[in-house]
């Protein structure tokens, strides 16, 4: 199959076949990271710009390592070190970057839709590394990769996504992605964390976390953004942990071989009990490891089209 996408902006715009190809490619490339010399010359002479307007450790490092393992040259720019602090508009910054002829621009931005605007503007491939509350396609792809690797399939699995769906780009991309691949996704959160209209994505919704966990093969826990308390989304971390946090006791309702995922960073003892995060069902670190392989696959596929 030929991969002819210019950009990776969201999961909606990827077909089932394209997702499969991305996951297959990632699985093949994963092995490179366990070699003694973790580098192949595939993307020698290519330039990848990482443009991060929001704080990030995991995603930015992951992209950087992915590009370097493929021998691409990488440059990281963050909002505080960019000319944005001098008042330059994003479009002007991007046009100047484009003039330097990079091959891929990876962008994270707090405003939804910014990667889409950028993609219309530049010739380079654009990868969305998270835009506002909208999408985080590379996270969803690496989550699908991780589940597929462990379970051998995605279709038919019950996937419970728990927590602040309203403010989560990870949730949006995962709902769309897992459903596209045939999984049964269910959402559980207090009503304040479920955005009106979310039913359009097709996943059933419950306010009862136990109901969502029942029979689940995968539980995806979302981060409680502590700063959100100002928006009256919940009363206290204590109460949140009690009614919506994932505890050992609650886990009994899930399947025996349940997998626990979390896009990170985690709040221990709030949305997830520490013994679960560190326990045998947790795939949190596996997610981080697969993130590198998945992003290598995307860079490879995008640049392979040229």
């Amino acid at each position: 199959m030929k991969f002819d996408k210019k950009d990776i902006l969201d999961i909606e715009s990827l077909s089932v076949e394209e997702i499969q190809l991305i996951l297959d490619t990632a699985e093949t490339l994963k092995e490179i990271s366990s070699r003694p010399i973790k580098k192949v010359p595939t993307l020698r002479g290519k330039t990848v710009v990482n443009f991060f307007y929001e704080p990030s450790t995991r995603t930015r490092t992951s992209f950087e390592i992915a590009a370097k393992r493929l021998s691409a040259d990488t440059i990281s720019v963050s909002a505080s070190t960019s000319s944005m602090v001098k008042g330059e508009t994003l479009i002007d910054t991007m046009k100047n970057l484009q003039a330097m002829n990079p091959d891929v621009i990876v962008i994270r931005h707090s405003a939804a839709g910014t990667p889409h605007m950028l993609a219309r503007l530049v010739e380079a491939s654009v990868i969305n590394a998270g835009d506002g509350m909208h999408a985080h396609p590379t996270q969803a792809l690496l989550d699908m990769m991780t589940v597929r690797e462990k379970k051998g399939r995605l279709a038919g699995l019950r996937v419970a996504i728990i927590g602040d769906v309203a403010h989560s780009r990870v949730a949006r991309s995962n709902i769309v992605g897992f459903m596209k691949m045939g999984a049964n996704v269910v959402l559980a959160a207090p009503p304040t964390m479920l955005p009106p209209g979310i039913e359009v994505l097709g996943a059933p919704v419950t306010y009862d976390i136990d109901e969502a966990i029942e029979g689940a093969s995968v539980i995806m826990v979302l981060r409680i953004q502590k700063e959100r308390q100002e928006g009256f989304l919940f009363s206290s971390e204590r109460e949140y942990a009690r009614y919506y946090g994932l505890t050992m006791k609650r886990l009994d309702r899930a399947k025996n071989d349940v997998m626990i995922m979390h896009p990170g960073p985690i709040n221990r003892g709030v949305e997830i009990a520490p013994e679960i995060a560190d326990g045998p069902c947790s795939l949190i670190l596996e997610q981080a490891a697969n993130g590198v392989a998945l992003r290598m696959a995307l860079l490879y596929l995008l640049l392979g089209r040229r």
């Binding site: 909208h134 955005p195 009106p196 979310i198 994505l201």
Partner: peptide
Amino acid sequence: GIVSARLGL
């Protein structure tokens, strides 16, 4: 509504 839910706005 449904469009804001999709677009993450």
